[in-house]
Design a protein around this nucleic acid. Sequence first.
DNA 1: TCCCGTAGTTCGCGAATTATGAACTAACGG
DNA 2: CCGTTAGTTCATAATTCGCGAACTACGGGA
Lengths: 123, 123
Amino acid sequence: MRPFTHPAVEDITLEGILHALSDPERMAIYGCLLNAEAAQSCANFQKINDRTVPKSTLSQHFRVLREAGLIRSERRGVEMLNTSRRTEIDKRFPGLVDALVAAWCRQAGKSAAGRKRGRRARA
Amino acid sequence: MRPFTHPAVEDITLEGILHALSDPERMAIYGCLLNAEAAQSCANFQKINDRTVPKSTLSQHFRVLREAGLIRSERRGVEMLNTSRRTEIDKRFPGLVDALVAAWCRQAGKSAAGRKRGRRARA
DNA sequence: TCCCGTAGTTCGCGAATTATGAACTAACGG
DNA sequence: CCGTTAGTTCATAATTCGCGAACTACGGGA
């Protein structure tokens, strides 16, 4: 099992980011990681959008996100802890993540959720 | 030859846009259309980035951009005139195009060129 | 120490997508 | 009509993707 490869900030490409996020499941994962308070294990995403994502597919999704430079993954015991590399991306492409998330929320009919201390929709 | 299909604004998806622009040649085409003063024919893009793009491939690129809702194509005599659907996209996903173009320019080392009456680089 | 369960990775291969040369179509201009 | 220009469609080779099955890594008992 080869160790993970995380690209350096300056090697992150727009192309890679767009490709990674052009898959709705990956976008959902990334969106979650963005407004998660703590690192998330892969297992937390076995269900996305009412679909059960096969383990191997999930693993690929994380690999694509990782190699695009969007997330950082680190082994912690038996699980992988994933966090977004948001501040780094913001440095390289200021405003990009914001715009993507905003568009994603708008399409899903959500208001730009979670950014400010996750106010929850009322029942 | 079937007539072109342009999605309605409300049918434009983020997924489609990201997929379309995750190809550097398509991003280059779209970037050009964005700050072109007049509609551009496909033939203007037979060379992208020092590569000669085959006609059939070019045609596909334009189809992908069109079906993603990013551009509008219309036959004018023997050629196709292409324009960006920017204002429509801006309505659906405010700020998205700006952010994408900014990121693209930044990666190419250009300053956000052309927006205001295409000032030309000096020789 | 050895075995087990959990979490995730890698392999392999069928399915889907993409790239592109070749053939085709549409719109003019003589 | 014929030729030219501009672009589309078709066929197929090459690439990428999705996912089940097998594998690896780690931690926890007994």
